[in-house]
């Protein structure tokens, strides 16, 4: 009996170093299961040196071979539900009308479209995370680099930019994004995004680091068959900063492009 008590007491004390050293004061708080990306203890963890630092201000490099939009690739096949939307948008365009111009109505652009607006994006890289803040509506993307996994699908909170987890592969950063909203989110005119959208981005800095290239692979089984791929480029713009830009109802009230009831199909 005495022996069993002795073993139990030893195990308790060894398993509670805080109590052993500081008794009778309160035990030290346990480290949370997942430290915040900006927690000093997380940032300080040893990690391999990343191959590049994306920190800077970037602007989509519009060109004929690098368009803003993410148009469906040749031979694309939509699901029947998405085809209805695509055909309706095509008809609206032929009539000179805007089909579900949700961005104009202040809905967030969402990934991937937010990346290719005509506004610069401020990107800030820490060892554990990259923050991307678009000059347009100051939409924020957070790419976690601290080794965490995607949030449990049962508790992930849907968003327009999704939940992005990145890891380094050679000279590239591979970013996996899921957890999107179902509504008011579009890939292109008449191409909806769903909660099953899955975006993989392979990010690389080219040449002297003045060009950011992202190779996109996207699937959304609710809306199209297979994977769609695009490669887009951004240029570093060291002579500019992002500013506050909020889409507001009272400003929109003076914008004929979004107030006209006869040329906007909602």
């Amino acid at each position: 009996m005495l022996k069993r008590f002795s073993i139990t007491a030893t195990a308790f004390l060894v398993g509670s170093p805080g109590l052993w050293a500081q008794a009778p004061s309160a035990p030290a708080p346990a480290e949370p299961a997942q430290l915040g990306a900006l927690a000093p203890a997380n940032i300080a963890k040893p990690r391999p040196k990343p191959p590049f630092d994306i920190t800077g201000t970037w602007l989509h490099a519009m060109a004929r071979d690098n368009p803003f939009n993410f148009s469906p690739p040749p031979g694309f096949k939509l699901t029947p539900e998405a085809q209805v939307q695509y055909d309706a948008a095509k008809k609206a365009r032929a009539e000179g009308k805007a089909y579900h111009d949700d961005i104009g109505q202040c809905w967030p652009a969402g990934l991937p479209v937010i990346m290719t607006r005509v506004w610069p994006i401020a990107m800030i890289q820490k060892p554990t995370v990259i923050f991307m803040v678009s000059g347009f509506m100051n939409s924020t993307r957070i790419i976690y680099l601290d080794g965490r996994k995607h949030t449990d699908p049962d508790i992930i909170i849907p968003s327009f930019n999704g939940e992005s987890i990145g890891h380094w592969e050679g000279d590239s950063l591979v970013v996996d994004t899921i957890g999107f909203v179902e509504d008011h989110h579009w890939i292109d005119n008449g191409i909806p995004a769903s909660d099953k959208l899955h975006v993989v981005e392979r990010m690389s800095l080219l040449g002297d680091g003045a060009t950011l290239q992202i190779e996109y692979t996207m699937s959304d089984p609710k809306n199209w068959v297979g994977e769609w791929k695009w490669t887009k480029r951004w240029k570093r713009v060291d002579d500019t900063d992002i500013t506050e830009a909020s889409c507001l109802p009272d400003l929109n009230a003076h914008m004929p492009s979004v107030t006209s009831t006869t040329t906007n199909i909602h």
Partner: peptide, 20 residues
Amino acid sequence: LIALCTIGIAYAHHSMEGFD
């Protein structure tokens, strides 16, 4: 021509279908 096209859509963040 490319520059003109670029300027033509400069800094519109949404559809401009409603204008002629």
